[in-house]
Computed example of a mutant assay.
Amino acid sequence: MIRVGMADDEPLFSAGLAMLLGAQEDIEVAWRAADGAQALRLEADEPVDVLLLDVQMPVMDGLSATRSLVESGTRARIVILTTFDTDGYVLGAIEAGACGFLLKSTPPDELVAAIRTVHRGDSVVSPGPTRRLVTALRSGAPAPGSLPPAPAHSAGDGGPGVGEPGAGGPGAGGPGAGGQGAAAELADLTEREREVLVLISTGLTNQEICDRLWLSMATVKTHVSHLLSKTGSRDRVQLVLLALRSGLVGLDELLADAV
Rank of each mutant, 00 (worst) to 15 (best):
E43A: 09
E43M: 00
A44D: 05
A44I: 08
A44G: 12
D45Q: 15
D45Y: 01
E46M: 06
E46D: 15
E46Y: 00
P47E: 05
P47Y: 13
P47I: 05
P47A: 04
P47C: 12
P47L: 06
P47R: 14
V48L: 03
V48D: 03
V48G: 04
V48Q: 07
D49H: 11
D49K: 07
D49L: 10
D49M: 04
D49F: 08
V50G: 09
L51M: 12
L51D: 03
L51G: 10
L51R: 11
L52C: 01
L52I: 00
L52A: 06
L53I: 11
L53K: 05
L53F: 12
L53E: 07
L53P: 00
D54P: 09
D54H: 11
V55N: 11
V55F: 10
Q56Y: 14
Q56T: 15
Q56W: 15
Q56P: 03
M57W: 13
M57G: 04
M57P: 08
M57N: 10
M57D: 14
M57S: 05
P58L: 13
P58A: 14
V59I: 07
M60V: 04
M60A: 02
M60W: 12
D61P: 08
D61H: 12
D61R: 15
G62P: 06
G62Q: 11
L63W: 07
L63D: 05
L63T: 12
L63H: 06
L63C: 10
S64P: 03
S64F: 06
S64M: 13
A65Q: 07
T66D: 01
T66M: 01
R67E: 14
R67N: 10
S68R: 13
S68C: 11
L69C: 02
L69I: 03
L69A: 14
L69S: 05
L69K: 08
V70C: 14
V70Q: 12
E71M: 04
E71P: 00
E71F: 00
E71H: 08
S72D: 12
S72I: 00
S72W: 01
S72K: 08
G73V: 03
G73E: 09
G73I: 04
G73K: 12
G73L: 06
G73Q: 05
G73N: 11
T74C: 06
T74I: 07
T74R: 07
T74P: 09
R75K: 09
R75F: 00
R75V: 08
R75T: 14
A76S: 12
A76C: 09
R77V: 00
I78R: 02
I78W: 02
I78G: 00
V79G: 00
V79H: 04
V79C: 10
V79R: 09
I80L: 13
I80Y: 00
L81P: 03
L81E: 01
L81R: 05
L81Y: 04
L81C: 05
T82I: 10
T82S: 14
T82V: 06
T82P: 01
T82A: 01
T83N: 14
T83V: 13
T83M: 15
F84E: 08
F84D: 13
F84W: 15
F84H: 15
T86P: 07
T86K: 15
T86E: 13
T86N: 14
D87L: 14
D87H: 11
G88K: 02
G88H: 12
G88L: 01
Y89C: 11
Y89H: 11
V90E: 05
V90N: 13
V90P: 01
V90Y: 02
L91E: 09
G92F: 04
G92I: 08
G92V: 12
A93Q: 03
A93C: 03
